[in-house]
């Protein structure tokens, strides 16, 4: 009888399957990595040289989103001196956006920076969420669905900007609190978010993301020396809908300049592509290897057992005799 499965064929097949799987998975992950966001998506350009720290955006956000009453009125500017665990104010379950003051030594005046969800083109919160609670809408917003959220808070760890916050006051009905670009009430109807509308200085300029980049470039080009020649968010973490212009290096106004230029998911994509392959192919493959590798031993063992049995038979016969 001709053997269908000999050791050589088995190994060949195993290697071919592994290689094919690896190639297929790689092509998949590459296609996903080429996703550069929705070209028609909207964005906001935040110009730090224009912001005067009036906190109108915070007030408008609170009203629009029906957030809880703040500890201090929104025209109370003493909040800029607050430090919480040695840090400036951060977004929390009661504030989707905060303005902070930065005293930069080389300037004779402070700078103010509004901060909120940056609405990444390829959001880490979205890709890290295993129940798909997050959606990047074609309009540019990263929205969140509390109905399916299980409250694992992986998104809070995944976000490179530490934006999503957990509503600890309702831990049994988990809810992540973060800026949604006023998607429900404004953006989906083509309107600017409440903070942008409230800003007196037009420090926040709303428009198509690509147009915001053009505007930023025009400002940099036509007022030489005023701005750092970079739009923060144009390429950071694969591009964000909210982008920043500053007159000082971005790390001096609390923006992380060490974030990768690629989406966060790209750092783990190769690994994630391996997981299904490892889980499905490797067990069978290595069990096969093991069985083949130990076959000789087992044959020898079986022969030994046979010999032993024969020996026993002989012994028994001898005893009988």
């Amino acid at each position: 009888m001709k053997k269908l499965f000999n050791r050589r064929n088995f190994l060949k097949g195993g290697l071919a399957t592994t290689a094919a799987a690896a190639v297929l998975k790689n092509s998949d992950s590459k296609a996903a990595g080429d996703f550069t966001g929705y070209p028609e998506g909207m964005g906001v350009l935040v110009d730090l040289t224009r912001c005067v720290g009036c906190r109108s955006c915070e007030a408008a956000c609170n009203e629009e989103q029906g957030l809880p009453e703040p500890a201090k009125p929104f025209n109370d500017l003493s909040v800029f001196d607050e430090l919480h665990h040695g840090q400036k104010r951060r977004t929390n379950e009661a504030a989707y956006t905060v303005v902070n003051r930065y005293d930069v030594p080389e300037l004779d005046h402070p700078l103010f920076k509004k901060f909120q969800c940056n609405h990444c083109n390829e959001p880490a919160c979205l890709t890290s969420c295993f129940v798909n609670a997050y959606t990047k809408t074609p309009e540019g917003a990263v929205i969140y669905n509390a109905k399916v959220c299980v409250g694992c808070r992986t998104c809070m760890i995944a976000c490179p900007f530490y934006v999503p916050t957990f509503k600890y006051s309702s831990a049994f009905k988990p809810q992540i609190m973060k800026c949604i670009f006023c998607y429900d009430t404004r953006l989906k109807n083509g309107d600017a978010p409440a903070c942008v509308e409230a800003c007196p200085q037009e420090a926040l300029t709303f428009g198509r993301r690509t147009d915001c980049i053009d505007m930023g470039r025009q400002r940099i080009r036509e007022t030489p020396g005023k701005y750092v020649d970079h739009i923060y968010g144009e390429h950071e973490v694969g591009g964000t809908a909210w982008m920043y212009l500053s007159s000082v290096p971005f790390d001096k106004v609390g923006l992380n300049t060490h974030v990768p230029k690629e989406p966060i998911i790209n750092s783990v994509k190769d690994f994630l592509a391996m997981v299904p392959m490892v889980l499905t192919i490797w067990p069978g493959l290595f069990v096969g290897f093991h069985l083949l590798a130990t076959r000789k031993d087992r044959v020898i063992e079986m022969e030994k057992e046979k010999e032993l049995a024969k020996q026993n038979e002989i012994d028994e016969k001898e005893e009988q005799v």
């Binding site: 809880p68 009453e69 703040p70 500890a71 909040v79 840090q87």
Partner: peptide
Amino acid sequence: FAPAKGTSSSDQKH
């Protein structure tokens, strides 16, 4: 419309 001191439900955390 100022928040009443001490009764705020949303003390700025973090």
